[in-house]
Amino acid sequence: MTYLKRSPWIIHYDASSCNGCDIEVLACLTPMYDVERFGIVNTGNPKHADIFVVTGSINEQNREVVKNIYEQMPDPKVVVAVGICAASGGVFRECYNVSGGIDKIIPVDVYVPGCAARPESIIDGIVKSLSILEEKRTKMNSPAAKKDTQSGGIQ
C-alpha cells in the first residue's frame, strides 16, 4: 500500500451528461456512501487529482476541455468513465452533437455501466481503478522507466 492508493484524489467533470450520473457521483461523497472515509477527496483542481471521473459523452464543445483537464493531471493517472453515455454515448449516441464515449479523446481505464450508474458501482469502479493506478505507479518508478525519462529529459 502506498499513500496514493490510500488516499486518491478525484476530479469530476460533467461532459454532456444528463446530470443523473453526476448527482450519483456527488452522492458517493455524502453520508450514506461516504467515500471520504477511505480518504477519497473530490477536488476541483486537475493538478491535485489522481483519478479523473468523467460522466456523459464527448461533444464538440467539451472535447478540448476534457483533453485539457486530462493533460493537466500529473502522472500516474487513471480515468473512470461513469455511466453508459461516457462509455459509448448511450441513449444519445445517434444525436448529431454527440461524438461517442470518452475513449474517443482520452484513454479510459475503467468503465462503470448504468443509466444512471448507481453509487455502489461507482465506488466499485473507483476501487478497481486504484489497483490500476498502483500498477502505473510501479511501472513509472521501475528502474527501466526511470532511465527512459532521464535520457529523454532536457540535456
Binding site: 454532456s16 443523473g20 444525436c95
Partner: peptide, 24 residues
C-alpha cells in the same frame, strides 16, 4: 457544453420509445 441535440431523436424513436429519451 452539454448540448446533445436530443430533440432530433423523435425522428429515430417511435413515440412510445421517446419517453426514455425525454426522461434522460
Amino acid at each position: 457544453y452539454i448540448h446533445r441535440g436530443l430533440e432530433t431523436l423523435v425522428a429515430k424513436r417511435e413515440f412510445t420509445e421517446y419517453v426514455y429519451v425525454a426522461e434522460r
